[in-house]
């Protein structure tokens, strides 16, 4: 318990126990901690209460998915170990519960991706700006996993570790500031590459470019290490998806697809 800190846990399982790493003490500091305690407990114990929507982080190993989520939920950057299987956080966003799934980028867990993405409302495709291959992998390996996501799923493309590049001044850890300095490695992936990828994704999904959010709005560059643009990313995505839930609720369609409830009805129709 030496590493635990004072906040209480969301259900998360992550990391390899042999390192003594236990992220049992995560919790959002979103300003409503009091009610959060009970809120979370209730969710954990009664499986009745389902999150209103699901957001999934995909991307190659080591690009910083876990670090991004950790930065957003706990407001800090901490050493991570490569994720095993997956982990999830619950985030209260206004009246909605959003479950955020952190997936494992390692090849051996690739097969789980489709299940994680099933019925997702938003997918954040993450790459490492200092590693071109990680961007290519998104298209080759991860895009296919999103076939199980909702039809109106929102996509965001995120280049993480911007702090490593010569584009970013590490001295000013203030969010939103990006003066130039040198002595950094060359940025391998430009934002334009990500925008191009985003457009290809829309084509792949056969979505009308005029209907979906603009590529410029859905491509982010972040640093989990400094916190640069991390809130911008998550909040931007939340604000984009929430209207979808509202719309769905209004049209009387439950967000979480429940085959068990819908199928028997169909079969009944068939019998008659």
């Amino acid at each position: 318990m030496s590493q635990s800190h004072d906040r209480v846990a969301v259900c998360i399982w992550n990391a390899v126990p042999c390192r003594g790493e236990r992220l049992d003490a995560t919790g959002s500091k979103d300003g409503r901690p009091g009610s959060d305690v009970m809120q979370r407990l209730w969710f954990q114990t009664s499986s009745m209460k389902k999150p209103d929507l699901k957001l999934v982080l995909l991307g190659d190993m080591n690009v910083g998915k876990t670090s991004l989520l950790h930065r957003y939920m706990e407001r800090r950057f901490q050493d991570t170990v490569s994720t095993v299987g997956g982990a999830f956080y619950l985030k209260q966003w206004g009246p909605y519960n959003i479950s955020i799934w952190d997936t494992a980028g390692r090849e051996q867990f690739h097969g789980l991706g489709s299940m994680y993405c099933r019925a997702a409302s938003a997918v954040i495709l993450t790459y490492d700006v200092s590693n071109m291959q990680s961007l290519l992998e998104l298209e080759d390996r991860f895009l296919g996993l999103t076939d199980t996501a909702n039809d109106d799923c929102i996509f965001a493309v995120v280049g993480n570790k911007i702090d490593l590049t010569d584009d970013y001044d590490s001295e000013s850890d203030m969010e939103g500031e990006r003066p130039r300095t040198s002595s950094k490695i060359r940025k391998q992936v430009d934002l334009e590459d990500a925008i191009a990828l985003y457009k290809r994704i829309m084509k792949y999904k056969m979505l009308d470019e005029n209907v979906v959010p603009a590529a410029e709005k859905m491509c982010f560059e972040t640093s989990a290490k400094t916190g640069y643009n991390v809130d911008g990313l998550f909040e931007g995505v939340f604000n984009m998806v929430v209207p979808l839930i509202v719309k769905k609720k209004a049209s009387g369609h439950d967000e979480t697809v429940n085959l068990a409830q819908s199928k028997p009805e169909k079969s009944k129709n068939r019998c008659c």
């Binding site: 399982w13 095993v84 097969g111 299940m115 994680y116």
Partner: peptide, 28 residues
């Protein structure tokens, strides 16, 4: 009800609903 536990890759205990959705993080 409607939920199973499955032995997954690398010794993961995966949870899955009949709809093919996982609602709990895996156990290792």
């Amino acid at each position: 009800r409607q939920e199973f536990l499955l032995a997954g890759p690398s010794g993961l205990g995966m949870f899955a609903t009949v709809a093919g959705i996982t609602q709990r993080a895996p156990v290792r």
